[in-house]
């Protein structure tokens, strides 16, 4: 009797476990649908005509014509993508190099009052870009950088250094000091240790930082809108709003433009998802 009671208990436990798993999977699938369906719907509508969009927004397109995509590409997306690529890559390289040097100094130097400097650099994380906009506009105008690539590259670099330094510093703290000392015994200078030993060892976190920075810079809107004005210098987020303003009624082209602008970043994310997650986890606990 006790045996059958026990087996009934086991069956009930199994059932609860399976049910919980099913619920979890269903929830995750729903979450995935909520995130992915709008993107899918946007890309799909890029293939439709305006009439089809208004007639039945959720139906499949009558044919997969890329005309809207070609139109969007030729009506500015090409330039916006080029600007975004320049600004994103330029600021990514600057941010990562400056942050890596800063992190190296903060982890390796025997600077007196080091915690204070760490506090200052990491305190930058608290600084909201919005409050600095007006002085920055004046500064950029005075320096003659307003409405140039450099305005965005410099600003993106400056505002991302605290976060990137935070990640690289945490990683560098975990690197064995013996390697630095071995390099010192080998006669390497601080610069040589940084470039030839520390930096190559930081490759995983540098890749993560570049990806996180690309995600940020590619989608940044506020600075891009304020510090650039000409169509030839606008980045994708700002350019997209221009396209929407210009082709307000031609939704098919707008959807195609939006899809084209999201595509590179989505592809980057999926290709480098591993590094992205590691980057987020790296700052924990150090």
């Amino acid at each position: 009797m006790s045996v059958s009671h026990q087996s009934r208990e086991t069956e009930r436990t199994d059932f609860v476990a399976v049910l919980a798993k099913v619920c979890l999977v269903a929830f995750l699938i729903s979450l995935g649908v909520v995130v992915l369906y709008p993107l899918f719907w946007m890309a799909l509508n890029g293939f439709k005509t305006n009439a089809e969009i208004f007639g039945n927004p959720f139906a499949l397109p009558g044919g997969f014509s890329v005309a809207n995509y070609i139109a969007a590409w030729n009506q500015g997306i090409r330039n916006y993508i080029a600007t975004s690529v320049i600004v994103t890559l330029g600021s990514a390289v600057c941010t990562v190099l400056v942050s890596a040097w800063t992190a190296y100094g903060l982890t390796r130097s025997k600077l007196p009052g080091k915690p204070f400097f760490v506090g200052i650099v990491l305190g930058g994380l608290m600084l909201s870009p919005t409050v600095a906009v007006i002085p920055l506009v004046r500064m950029m105008q005075d320096l003659g950088l307003y409405n140039t690539y450099w305005a965005l590259i410099i600003l993106y670099t400056a505002f991302r250094i605290p976060f990137t330094t935070f990640l690289i510093r945490a990683y560098m703290l975990g690197l064995p000091r013996d390697l630095d000392e071995a390099a010192i015994m080998d006669g390497a200078s601080e610069g040589q240790i940084f470039w030839k030993v520390t930096l190559p060892l930081c490759k995983p976190i540098l890749v993560s930082c570049v990806i996180l920075h690309v995600l940020f810079a590619w989608n940044e809107y506020l600075f891009a809108m304020i510090f650039t004005s000409g169509a030839d210098l606008q980045t994708l987020p700002v350019g997209l709003t221009s396209i929407m303003a210009k082709h307000g009624t031609n939704y098919a082209v707008v959807f195609a433009a939006m899809t084209l602008s999201a595509l590179p970043i989505v592809m980057t994310f999926f290709a480098a998802q591993r590094f992205f997650i590691r980057g987020l986890a790296e700052g924990i606990g150090k």
């Binding site: 064995p176 013996d178 390697l179 000392e181 071995a182 390099a183 015994m185 190559p200 060892l201």
Partner: peptide
């Protein structure tokens, strides 16, 4: 004129 062998080997992994 000194060389040192470290406890952890301290070889450059890359």
């Amino acid at each position: 004129g000194i060389s040192m062998v470290f406890q952890s080997y301290a070889l450059y992994p890359h």
